[in-house]
Simulated assay, not measured.
Amino acid sequence: MQMKKMIAIAGLTLAMPLAAFADDDAIKALNLQGAKADQVKTIMDNYKDQKEDIKDRAHEEINALKDRKKEQLDAVLTDAEMDQLEKWKETKEDRYKDKHKECKKLMDKYDD
């Protein structure tokens, strides 16, 4: 879980300058003024709003899908099998974390 958070923070940090460029900086870079600048800003703002809406809906749908999967597995697997499945998932996640310890070390270095 910690690794996912660090990767997300790193991605957002890298994306922030690009997001800033997409609005006012793009208008400045193109030397737009007046109505055209307003139109570009409106287009960019609408895009951002729609993109966030899509992300929110997708997140909700994915969570609903996960819930349905769990319900279906609960109906098919015994409690012992469900426990075994959870342990398998944890083991898989632990192996993933082990593979990326070097990345974690680098991220920790920059957290200080």
Rank of each mutant, 00 (worst) to 15 (best):
M3I: 13
K4S: 09
A8P: 01
A8Y: 09
A10N: 09
A10W: 12
L12E: 09
L12A: 12
T13P: 00
T13K: 08
T13R: 07
T13Y: 01
L14M: 08
A15N: 05
L18V: 00
L18S: 02
A19R: 02
F21M: 09
F21T: 00
F21C: 00
A22H: 01
A22C: 01
D23Y: 07
D23A: 13
D23Q: 06
D23P: 05
D24M: 06
I27H: 06
K28R: 10
K28H: 05
L30C: 10
L32K: 09
Q33W: 02
G34E: 06
G34I: 04
K36G: 01
D38W: 02
Q39R: 12
V40Q: 03
I43R: 02
M44A: 10
M44I: 05
D45P: 01
D45K: 07
D45I: 00
N46M: 14
N46C: 06
Y47G: 06
K48Y: 06
K48I: 06
K48W: 03
K48F: 07
K48T: 05
D49R: 06
K51N: 14
E52D: 11
D53S: 11
K55E: 02
K55W: 05
A58K: 12
I62E: 11
L65S: 14
K66T: 08
D67Q: 14
K69T: 10
K70Y: 09
E71N: 10
Q72C: 05
L73M: 15
D74L: 09
A75I: 11
L77G: 02
T78C: 01
A80E: 12
M82V: 04
D83G: 04
Q84S: 13
E86W: 04
W88P: 01
W88H: 08
K89W: 07
K89M: 11
K89D: 07
E90L: 14
K92A: 15
K92M: 14
E93Y: 03
E93I: 06
Y96C: 10
Y96R: 13
Y96L: 15
K97Q: 15
D98T: 04
K99M: 15
K101H: 09
C103K: 04
K104V: 12
L106D: 00
D108P: 01
K109A: 15
K109S: 14
K109W: 15
K109E: 14
Y110H: 03
Y110R: 07
D111N: 11
